[in-house]
């Protein structure tokens, strides 16, 4: 044992051969996963801060007309994807500093409630929050954009292969029942002033369209079907239904389940012994198998 010719074996693990030059990844000290994450982040999350000029552009005297022109809308939509949620809130602040509504496409002055809180139909709201906007509708529209920035859905932006946050503007509110009712009232009053006239015209147009639709639905739609409504005469008091003899007769009524008598036909007599039962079972199962096989091969 003492005179073994083998040299002592190292207990250390064999080192893998070192690469010639460290890769770029190793130089930055990042793992592959981290690098990949950074790459996706650079396409989505990591954005340079918005320059102050953009804030000025979107806050001072923007939009130039009311309702906003198409160029104003496209300008806003081109800038918005670069905003972070907090920067968007800054923009609202900045607009409020100039006393305009926080929604970037509204040039009206913001509300000016006093006091700390205000009771509204939806609950108690801080006046600080209410005063950011000119109306509840603008608040909805403004926060609609904020939500999209907070939970961005990305889309590919053109040839550069960059990810861009998809921003949609909230549509104007559609006229509700109240507005239509008002419009109809305006029609009956012969349109004393211009505003009424306009609404009356709208209602008239709607009526016309409804008439057309009706014609379209039932052909030329002029012929009417004669309908006469008569009363059903009752001569005697109602009685509970009874089983007729065809269904099993009165004597078997207590054995019926939903009109079917259990245990009358197709059931074996139960006087066979224990052994016989076993044989029966054994025979029964293969017969099913054969049947099923026959079904399988037509």
């Amino acid at each position: 044992m003492a005179s073994t010719p083998n040299p002592p074996k190292s207990i250390l693990k064999k080192q893998p051969p070192t690469p010639d030059a460290p890769s770029a990844l190793e130089l930055t000290g990042l793992t592959r996963a981290q690098a990949a994450q950074l790459l996706t982040l650079s396409k989505t999350e990591l954005k340079p801060p918005i320059p102050i000029e953009t804030f000025e552009l979107l806050s001072a005297a923007f939009p130039s007309s009311q309702p906003p022109s198409q160029s104003d809308i496209s300008l806003l939509l081109s800038h918005l994807p670069n905003f972070s949620p907090s920067e968007y809130l800054d923009l609202i602040d900045e607009r409020n500093c100039l006393n305009t509504c926080g929604y970037a496409l509204c040039s009206k002055p913001r509300r000016n409630f006093t006091g700390k809180v205000k009771i509204r139909r939806s609950g108690v709201a801080k006046t600080e929050d209410l005063n950011k906007w000119c109306s509840d509708e603008c608040a909805l529209k403004g926060m609609y954009i904020h939500v999209q920035l907070e939970h961005p859905s990305y889309e590919w932006a053109g040839e550069k292969g960059e990810m861009k946050v998809k921003i949609r503007l909230r549509e104007d509110k559609e006229p509700g029942v109240k507005e239509v009712k008002k419009a109809v009232e305006g029609l009956s009053l012969d349109g004393a002033d211009d505003e009424r006239d306009k609404k009356g015209d709208e209602a008239h147009e709607k009526k016309k369209q409804a008439g057309k639709l009706a014609v379209e639905r039932n052909g030329m739609g002029v012929d009417k079907v004669e309908v006469t409504i008569g009363e059903k005469e009752i001569t005697q008091p109602p009685t509970a239904p009874t089983f007729t003899s065809a269904q099993g007769g009165e004597s078997d009524a207590h054995l019926m389940v939903e009109g079917y008598k259990i245990g009358s036909k197709g059931k074996k007599p139960n006087n066979t012994g224990g052994e016989g039962e076993d044989d029966d079972d054994d025979d029964f199962i293969p017969s099913i198998r054969i049947e099923s096989l026959n079904y399988g091969r037509p």
Binding site: I52, F55, E56, S59, A60, D93, E94, C97, N99
Partner: peptide
């Protein structure tokens, strides 16, 4: 008195 923005 209200708030101070970029312009001021």
């Amino acid at each position: 008195k209200t708030s101070i923005g970029i312009s001021v």
